[in-house]
Design a protein around this nucleic acid. Structure first.
Lengths: 344, 344
DNA sequence: CTGTTAGCGCTTTCAG
DNA sequence: CTGAAAGCGCTAACAG
């Protein structure tokens, strides 16, 4: 800006006024300065101006990392922000603990005027800027929130497997801090209970949504003597890793092992075979979060919690269990039941 | 930071030293300050620190808007940046002219240490920070660049339609400022020429990749008395809008009208029927760009231009042209040919 | 109408 | 080892 001022023969203050369209500058001066700005291709430094003004016209989308799920949310949020007059800044803070608080503190207040947080886990208190959470942590939560009906979705997925004849159904859980992860496990357990199938604790595992961890857990499951005939994973990425491991073991999916995921990220339908999964409307969720954020900023009153419907999408990774395993497994199931302890 | 200093009973200078791990602070003071930081959940203001330091550990991905294409690039770039020690900031500057220069000026120098630019059109000169372009503008270009082989991809798409028996093939062009858009049109024209099919100029249209514009152009094409039997669109989004318009007109895709896109964004395979398209390896392109940027920053010498292969993906939107149109059109084609001018 | 001045939150000399 | 002071690029009062 100093360069522009020097070239135009005015002070930086004057340039600043021109840039921000403030009153009190002679028409000729405005034109002169604008000419120089054009010619030099000057554009103000965002850090400096936002630091000074204590406000911006930028909204943030804060994620732990840019994976398929957050990318879908981003598309939806961007579409909703279109025409709002705000620019968008998406920030990935790295997966380390407390990224949400850290990102928000680093960007909030100056750089961004508000934020959409994706799967935050360590945040609840009042924040510096308006915030909307997508799929946040388990437990009491005062943040305006968008999420999907994970419980029902998980029930549907599990019922689908049960209706195909599966009894030994493993559950690859997500991150226990997330409300959605809890609900998916609860939905699984509920569907099993309703069908009168005892849940074998050895088949309920946690992956923290880390693909390598999912692979490891799946290997352990498939090496069991009474291996499961189906796996329900709490998200698509881990489900797809489970598919990879099945192939490692020489098992055909779905003939030898059925797999269901959760989310319906674009990659799910592109897998071979394409993944049966529970769809959450990610782009709509992103858009809803952005709309809610905009409302918050503009002081529009509204219901601060939106839960969206999920939908089972049956594709190529689920079918009846292999006959030899069904018959081989049934007796094993009967023994503990006979002890009267399992069939809750 | 002042709050932390006050609470710890030290100066802000000392807090700063602790935060940045500078030498020359008593061990006890360090621990005291760190305790307070922890307790207060303090995290430094990115604008302020980067403004002062004139450098950051953040890399930018600058796009006009977050649509499916840039979202895929983003996933790839994020994967490549993993473990590099850099955080990522994706910025959408709004679609207005000159967004690339503007975004770069506003973020560069202070906020970000380097940037990947997606489809920039008004940038060439030396920039403040290292920059890598993905799919940049037409004409001489000194920026390190990643792009896909649009020419060959467009040829393959057009040949595919020709081999199915299509002769009246429309081309929905992209943004003429982009090199890739030129190459796609050139590939189309080349394939037509090789097959000895004259290109009807009325069938070659521009959409600027604006969906609504694509819809409008498609309507015009479908209202022609000699309407095309196939449309090759320069990207998937416009191709999908063309599908919508075909349905408006009561035309079945592909029976009445074949359509081919370009990109293979996730949405393409999810369309009904799923879109035949030319795949560019978007995630790999994003990763390659990020790797190149990292090399640039670290002073690693390497070839500054990478062109990636494309691949025709035949799905559900292409088939033979309807019989009545083939026979109806042939004579029209013969007349100008008889004049000896067209069959170049 | 224009320029001088102070200060946004932070880091970095440089005295104490 | 610690703190006072200057300054990063910008904007908002306020004088001139």
């Amino acid at each position: 800006m100093a360069d522009v001022a020097a070239r135009a023969g005015v002070s930086v203050a004057t340039v600043s006024k021109v840039v921000n369209g403030r009153y009190g500058v002679a028409k000729e001066t405005v034109e002169l300065v604008q000419g120089v700005i054009e010619e030099m291709g000057y554009a103000g430094n965002l850090s400096a101006s936002s630091l000074r003004m204590q406000q911006t016209n930028v909204l943030g989308i804060l994620v732990a990392s840019f994976e398929p799920f957050s990318a879908e949310l981003l598309k939806g949020a961007a579409a909703a922000a279109e025409g709002s007059g705000y620019e968008l800044l998406a920030h990935s803070g790295g997966d380390n603990h407390g990224w949400e608080r850290r990102s928000l503190a680093r960007l909030g207040g100056t750089l961004i005027a508000g934020a959409v947080l994706v799967t935050p886990t360590v945040l609840d208190a009042r924040t510096v800027v308006p915030v909307v959470a997508i799929d946040p942590h388990y437990g009491p939560n005062r943040l305006p929130t968008i999420d999907a009906d994970s419980f029902t979705g998980a029930e549907q997925a599990t019922e689908h497997l049960i209706s195909l004849g599966h009894r030994r159904i493993a559950f690859l859980g997500g991150r226990s801090e997330l409300d959605s992860a809890h609900l998916r496990e609860a939905g699984y357990r509920n569907a099993m209970a309703e069908a009168g199938i005892p849940v074998d604790q050895a088949l309920v595992r946690e992956t923290r949504y880390v693909p390598d961890r999912a692979a490891e857990v799946t290997r352990e499951l498939l090496m069991m003597k009474d291996r499961p005939t189906a796996i329900f994973a709490a998200n698509d990425i881990t489900a797809m890793r489970a598919m990879d491991v099945a192939h490692e073991f020489g098992l055909a999916v779905p003939e030898d092992l059925s797999i269901v995921g959760f989310d319906d990220v674009p990659e799910a339908s592109l897998a071979t075979p394409s993944l049966t999964t529970v769809r959450q409307p990610m782009q709509s969720m992103g858009a809803a979060a952005m709309t809610m954020l905009l409302d918050l900023i503009n002081g529009v009153e509204r219901e601060p919690h939106v839960r969206m419907a999920t939908e089972l999408v049956v594709r190529g990774t689920t079918t009846e269990p292999p006959v030899e395993l069904v018959t081989a497994v049934e007796p094993a199931l009967v023994v503990p039941a006979a002890r009267g302890a399992v069939d809750a």
